[in-house]
Nucleic acid binder design. Structure first.
Lengths: 144, 144
DNA sequence: GTAGCATCGAAAATCATTCTCAACAGGAAT
DNA sequence: ATTCCTGTTGAGAATGATTTTCGATGCTAC
């Protein structure tokens, strides 16, 4: 919460101007752990920052992504989701509820052996794989 | 090319009315092997069928997908792609040129061992995985 | 303090896809 | 072959996420 917290430091380190909007957006992204959409971030930040515009959220997240500070996760058809984790990992999307979960890169079976000729047989690294399926929650008895 | 070819038979089998639009679209989809978008299919069919509307292409491909006759492939951000292969397999997308390649489900390392708790540890089956990367073509020396 | 450039907000623009609705055409029964 | 019913089509409007535009604002350096 100090004026020179890690969020501010992060922006500085990236050579980006430290604006209240950027600080609020980046802080919020770290607070929302569940891969929020731009709209999700917007609604949350807006509570403390009513003048914030959705345009700025998109712009800021894009800028942060260019600087490797956040990651974009494209899930089929739906809106883009943002991830504050920047270390190598993959994602699983529930095609029913849309929730997103992290999949560690070290999954046995994923990193080992798998090679794709189209990609020159290099194994997929960080944020390169999206799995689609139905999550345990949506598969349970009480599913509509 | 006969009036009762496999395309027509396919539509009949699915209980769908056999219209010239549907025949042309399904035939074209089988002709375009590279996972075309609705727009790609539209442009191709339109050459022989100028009155065809893009709406019909979307509608027909959706209908065929519901009947398991084609598969939708969502690739990050871009338009949806359609696949005439309906047997279980996955996909690899080049993030540079957008080209799509098939990845066999029997890939050693993909089907074996891999389990995702979020999905109840079931291994991913048919059309459930999308790999992102840069294809060999886009990685070569002559890349712009 | 002021110039200059980055950033911001609001509204318009874009792009893929879907919806609406009136006109039309398969195809089963006749 | 004709008719009727219902599914299908085409054109254009609508939608929804994201991007662009542009005038206003505000850091930062001088």
């Amino acid at each position: 919460m100090s004026s020179l917290d890690s969020t501010t430091a992060t922006l500085r380190r990236r050579g980006l101007r430290v604006t209240p909007q950027r600080v609020a957006i980046l802080r919020t992204l770290h607070g929302l752990a569940n891969h929020p959409s731009a709209e999700d971030v917007f609604r949350t930040v807006q509570r403390d920052f009513p003048s914030l515009s959705l345009t700025t959220v998109y712009r800021t997240l894009e800028t942060l992504a260019e600087h490797g500070e956040v990651e974009l996760v494209h899930v089929g058809g739906e809106r883009v989701r943002f991830d504050h984790r920047t270390d190598p990992h993959h994602h699983a999307v529930c095609t029913v509820c849309g929730r997103l979960a992290d999949v560690e890169e070290s999954q046995p079976g994923l990193a080992d052996g798998l090679s794709i000729p189209f990609f020159g047989n290099e194994r997929p690294r960080g944020n390169a794989v999206v799995f689609y399926g139905v999550c345990t929650g949506c598969r349970s008895p009480a599913t509509a």
